[in-house]
Design a protein around this nucleic acid. Structure first.
Lengths: 354, 354
DNA sequence: ATATATATGTTCATAATGAGCATAACAATA
DNA sequence: TATTGTTATGCTCATTATGAACATATATAT
């Protein structure tokens, strides 16, 4: 626990993306307080008001003394800090880029963070009260296509990325940028967006300077190297203001990575059921899938798919809370996992329907 | 670099699973030499002959001073040690279980290892000569179903796992074991094996004591705790001798994890092409997919799928080396990645054909 | 020429998918 | 009580994808 001024030191941390879905909004647990007084230099300078500070993901150091495995370490402090015992926990990715923690600039250690995805119900929060549930799409607004192609994509992201393509130093670089944009967002061609490539999209926006974190980091690096701050494209800067809520460190990248992983997993593992209550209607289930995948689904086909796959069985109960014909309540049929190889909700390849 | 006797110390390492496919065998790069004189206590005691020492995966410590990112760190020492510049590199998983490095028993630090998957051609090896290519299925023989259900599954794995199920302490535990076995290997039901669940299968064998590493670790822990070595089921022990080549540390677990990841990726990202030469016949491509997925595929359907998906284009050349009608040579159409969302070889759901 | 081995092309039945139309069961209201 | 709005549920149809078999083409070796 000694604070090192030898910058060769390397520290391992655990970061949690804790997910729940209420009605139609996917939520992640965030803390307003910068954990361990972690703040960007700019923020320390300005001593920003609490409401200006970007959110962080729940974070805890990994204590090799106390925990036999990484996952147990994560579960440990998550429960201590938030009272949550996630139903599902999965390791996401290990982030170790230089300067992902700005304290490195002042000789702080390199912090390598192992990110985990955790699924739960939305629960009343124990603990300090600094934690709260936040709409996932607040931070990644370009990922929500449920109402059709989001306005932000056409009005902000697309023109800004085209500027960025044009601004490439030479032709090969331009071509490479064009291809990456095309793959991630599917603009040019008739190809649909691949809703699973969330991380690629975020990284593109970051490189193009279209998220505030990119400007923040560029500035910090230049300052630390004693260089003059480079000019910032005013158009890009304005765009960066509009691309959703920034987060501390690389936490938004982690969020994007988690969303992509979860979207991918939906299709072949029965993870939705870890986000649903014991009994649920098929529409409720559909809404949760839609919330996470960010797309609308065809109601009858969704129904057919779920029933034909024997994913659920009727409980005999009905939901009478909504107007109209009461819906049947179902429960997850756990047996399916032993019956078939891939168990998931099988999202359609592209289209948006309803 | 100071060797710590404070066991709270934690060290980050990078482990590489470097894959190539020659003809019909998938290969991974292994080193016979135990890296950094790393050996299990048992091995140190017996001072095993070199050919008795289990292989290890290429490993290097992560030096935060020298490398901006984890991936660059990995690429760095991989090229230094082996001369290989992989065409594709992807982070796999971070392994941090207690005692994954047996030196912990003697006060050594907890070693958390970030594993990477790397794809390349099989290349003549530079460096010490300690490294060599090894058939992946030497270590995971139960994963190769190309010749139908492997003998080892029926003769050894299945009966041993059924013993293990019976040996559960109580009924719920027995039920849980039964379900896990069923999901991983698909014995009971008509369900096919899910060829992607390699890690689950390995972990099952490990828990059931059916791989030598499990016996090794159990012994080491008991010895370190001063307990009397527990009796080892002689049947299980015999089985463990027959379940393929053991590896040092948890390297076989990492191998299983890599195989599963790669199998999954095949279906929706064009990773095969990083294992193929510039020009190849469709049969060659099929053989590579089969080698990795561990299953035989229907030739005509594979052909149709690849061609209809516009994954490849003819080079106009032909392969005249084999008897019979010469095969057309194709190259990868890079453009497809911008044309469609999921680009891969779309393995069929189950069956084995030819 | 003939046998043999491989590559390539075609067809067919079946299953999965996307989309629309039709009906059923409730509540609120006229 | 009849009407209307709202949601759930069921059915059909065209299109496409998939698994499998059969048929043909082009080479080498004898």
């Amino acid at each position: 626990m000694s604070s090192g001024d030898i910058s060769s030191e390397t520290v391992i941390g655990l970061t949690a993306v804790i997910v729940a879905v209420t009605d139609e909004t996917p939520r992640v647990l965030v803390a307003r307080r910068i954990h361990h007084d972690l703040a960007t230099p700019a923020q320390q300078g300005r001593s920003a008001a609490p409401q200006d500070r970007p959110d962080t993901l729940p974070y805890g150091p990994f204590d090799a003394q106390r925990h036999r495995t990484l996952e147990l370490g994560l579960r440990g402090w998550v429960e201590e800090q938030t009272g949550i015992r996630p139903r599902y926990v999965e390791q996401l990715y290990t982030f170790g880029n230089q300067y992902r923690d700005p304290r490195e600039f002042e000789g702080g250690p390199r912090v390598v963070s192992i990110a985990y995805l955790a699924l739960t119900h939305e629960t009343p929060l124990a603990g300090t009260g600094e934690a709260r549930w936040r709409d996932w799409y607040d931070c990644l607004p370009w990922e929500d296509w449920r109402g059709g192609r989001p306005a932000i994509v056409d009005k902000i992201v697309r023109p800004a990325l085209q500027n960025w393509i044009r601004a490439a130093p030479d032709r090969p670089a331009r071509e490479e940028r064009r291809e990456r944009v095309s793959v991630a967002f599917g603009f040019d061609k008739s190809a649909p967006v691949d809703y699973v490539r969330c991380l690629e999209r975020y990284e593109l926006l970051y490189e193009a300077g279209l998220v505030l974190e990119a400007l923040r980091d560029r500035l910090a690096i230049e300052r630390a190297q004693g260089r003059k701050p480079s000019a910032i494209d005013s158009k890009a800067s304005a765009a960066a203001q509009a691309t959703g809520a920034p987060m501390a460190l690389d936490n938004r990248r982690i969020l994007a990575s988690a969303l992509g992983r979860l979207r991918g997993k939906l299709a072949y593992r029965p993870v939705i059921f870890d986000l649903l209550p014991e009994e649920f209607t098929l529409l409720r289930m559909q809404r949760v899938v839609e919330a996470l995948s960010g797309r609308r689904l065809h109601k009858q086909n969704f129904r057919r798919m779920v029933l034909n796959a024997d994913l659920v069985e009727s409980t005999g109960h009905r939901d009478t809370t909504s107007p109209g014909r009461p819906a049947e309540l179902f429960r997850f049929r756990r047996e399916v996992v032993t019956e078939r190889a891939a168990v998931g909700v099988g999202l359609p390849a592209l289209s948006a329907a309803e």
